[in-house]
């Protein structure tokens, strides 16, 4: 079957975000919290094992993953959106289960609170601290629990994105601690963490100029795309640009780039990222408001 030209390996359009589910106020002990699930909804299907070679071929072009054998059948995980496009190639199949392939982040905010150690405190403003950690089982090969250099760098850029968004001068001599834990990863963990962190800060009642909305855009397989998956990050021409934006003012508070692009491409990527960040902002707002709607329903 011939693929229409404007579909990506997971079935999305070039400017389409993955599914983003945000829930605010998910932890009891934290002053503010949020959980974000950012990824692809998939179907686990079982097919005739004789199709294995054909499916492995398909897996070169599309973001489908073989899951191994169960009984006499071969299990394949297929992003929902691409399934209709490859049905002919799959032949007959049964849907065995629903799956989710993406990022899961849980963020807690503790603060404003007394600075410990004391010397960390600033007499003029609250100090925002960010600690990004990944569970050993969040990545394909088990990661040792201790934070590595990548985690330290991500923590730094996230902290810098949030420090000025908070009205820190209202809480001198305090710290605002943000802890982000990644439980599952599939390209875009820092973007997921920061999006969740912004919601957690608001959930904690900390005064902010605005939310901070993060998203990644870039290039893969010859096209400028929004929200790359791992599959796209591994493309030979891949460029990944995570960014975070203040939706009300369009200011960029986080921006990193990995790859090689022309200035024109970079402009396009930034433009796309900005538009998508605003979509993320809408979802963040909804999540915060939904928390209160939940309350009224439950009574």
């Amino acid at each position: 079957m011939k693929m229409p030209n404007d579909i990506r390996p997971d079935g999305r359009k070039f400017d389409e975000l993955r599914s983003i589910e945000i829930e605010a106020g998910v932890l009891d002990q934290a002053d503010g919290s949020a959980r974000v699930k950012w990824g692809l909804h998939t179907k686990i299907i079982s097919v005739d094992p004789r199709k294995e070679a054909k499916i492995r071929n398909l897996a070169e072009e599309y973001y489908i993953t073989l899951r191994g054998k169960e009984g006499k059948k071969l299990l394949v995980e297929v992003p929902e959106k691409i399934l209709p496009h490859i049905e002919d190639d799959l032949g007959s199949y049964n849907v065995v289960a629903d799956g989710f392939k993406g990022n899961v982040a849980v963020v807690a905010v503790h603060g404003p609170r007394e600075p410990i150690p004391r010397h960390v405190g600033d007499p003029y403003r609250s100090v925002v601290r960010f600690r990004y950690t990944m569970a050993p089982f969040s990545v394909p090969e088990r990661k040792r629990p201790a934070p590595g250099r990548r985690e330290v760098e991500i923590s730094k850029v996230c902290k810098e994105a949030l420090q000025r968004i908070v009205f820190a001068e209202e809480f001198p001599m305090t710290v605002i601690d943000v802890f982000a834990e990644i439980l599952a990863a599939d390209a875009g963990t820092r973007v997921t963490a920061l999006t969740a962190a912004s919601v957690a800060l608001a959930d904690a009642g900390i005064p902010m100029r605005d939310l901070v909305s993060a998203v990644a855009a870039g290039r893969a397989f010859g096209h400028i795309v929004a929200d790359l998956t791992k599959f796209e990050e591994d493309a030979p021409d891949a460029v990944d640009v995570p960014m975070a934006v203040v939706p009300g003012t369009e200011e960029f508070v986080l921006l990193q780039m990995d790859g090689r692009v022309t200035k024109r491409e970079m402009d396009d990527i930034i433009e796309l990222g900005l538009a998508k960040a605003k979509e993320v902002a809408e979802l963040q707002r909804k999540a915060l408001k939904e928390k209160y709607a939940r309350v009224v329903e439950n009574e």
Partner: peptide, 28 residues
Amino acid sequence: VPGEVVTEERVKLGPGVYVRDGKVVAKT
């Protein structure tokens, strides 16, 4: 939620808001 516009009219500012680009915006 933070960043949402409360009003674009010229009003006195109570707690919980600030002015951005001439609009009154929520802080929390």
